[in-house]
Design a protein around this nucleic acid. Structure first.
Lengths: 226, 226
DNA sequence: TAAAATCTGTTACCATGGTAACTAATTAAT
DNA sequence: ATTAATTAGTTACCATGGTAACAGATTTTA
């Protein structure tokens, strides 16, 4: 890919959009602070415990951040797509090691920007600083959200929360699943069979209907406006 | 408290230590950007959903960040003590609302510094920027740590993790408890009675001994160097 | 120092949800 | 097109841990 393509990509990126063209160009032309890597589907982009020294920007594909324990249980923390960046909260830490695995869900292209480049941009460009702070805040929010989602909740409660969230997004009682049930189970941090069982129970209780690609909310008051 | 006391306090604060005396003085003298509040024991410093507009620095006392659900179950995310600051990860968010309750464990004195003051310091002082970024990173780390600690773990595993952690801190098989069992249960996000039961089981299994103020590791290989 | 408030341990009861072991149904690959 | 791989649903079994209801111990407060 040509430098010009990267620049065009960054010009519309939420984080870099306020950095002048000339500055972005300078970064690409005058330094080794930036590199780009392609990954095949299902490959490890960063291992747990690996040192983080770059801010990674997803140029193509979908990337998962997952906690995988000794037994192989998976908890998907978040999914990053094109334009998203990762590692901002690690880069300047005094323990800058990935606490979880970063894995490509599809084939992916990642742009790596070195720590110092980010620090320089924070200093030289107020809007970049604001964008960066806002961005890492929203990542932290994601983490608190996950804590709330998984702590002290029954599977049924987790499912209802998921349905609420999707209902708001899709604005329909028939919720299309953009992922497999297996992936949903990993997102909720539970066993696939347990999800299956609870969905069946909820169907039996007349709360929902479901098939392979959607869940339909039958009992409308499952949805609570918050 | 006199301005001079605040300045002295901030001069030794990890976050503000690199800001020149004159600049800190300026902040106090020329603006309404800073204020100080005292709280009694067990009072709410910030409600969940309240808007965050200041960085809060603990000048005296101990403060808890807790997730409290409808049923009253408590999960203590972290404990902040004198010198710690809170809210850094919220201040610049586009959804700057406290996701959890902030509560004083003891009587406490909190210094509130307005958002713009922090942003200005980030811009004008490279070391402050670095300190601030490092600080919010460590707060994010805390959150990932909590996710790991609570997700898909049995109570026994949680207890063993806690003992491991404390063993490293105290460097002794006899671990002094700096908190009540009730508080420990809240830290682990479990019921007090369940903690009590599991501790008893572990004693019966010859893994530990315990009394009101300490837990002694009997089976040394509970501790695994990681 | 007495009373009130908190903390602690215990235990019977039982709902939740992980495990394992299958079968069927889809989807992807050769 | 057929084999291989992945996804999905089901269910018996049972460990984990929440609930509730006590009794005793300890600490705090008046």
């Amino acid at each position: 890919m040509k430098t010009e393509n990267y620049i065009q990509f960054l010009k519309i990126n939420p984080l870099f959009k306020d950095v002048p063209y000339i500055e972005i160009k300078y970064i690409f032309e005058n330094s080794t602070d930036i590199s780009c890597t392609s990954y095949r589907k299902n490959s490890v982009i960063h291992f747990e415990s690996e040192k983080c020294s770059t801010l990674d920007i997803v140029m193509e594909g979908t990337v998962l951040v997952q906690k995988i324990d000794e037994k192989g249980n998976i908890l998907t923390i978040t999914e990053f797509i094109e334009g998203d960046n990762m590692g901002g909260n690690l880069l300047f830490s005094n323990l800058p090691f990935y606490p979880m695995s970063v894995i490509s869900k599809t084939s992916a292209v990642i742009l790596h920007v070195k720590k110092d480049t980010i620090l320089n941009l924070c200093q030289s460009n107020l809007n970049f600083l604001k964008n960066f702070l806002c961005d890492i805040s929203s990542k932290a929010n994601l983490l608190t959200g996950k804590i709330k989602a998984i702590s002290q909740k029954t599977i049924r409660e987790s499912i209802i929360d998921f349905l609420n969230y999707e209902y708001c997004l899709q604005n329909s009682y028939k919720i299309k699943l953009s992922m497999t049930k297996k992936e949903l189970a990993e997102k909720l941090g539970i066993q696939r069979t347990s999800l299956s069982r609870e969905l069946s129970k909820m169907k039996k209780d007349g709360l929902i209907c479901f098939d392979a690609h959607s869940i339909t909310i039958e009992k409308k008051n499952l949805i609570v406006s918050k």
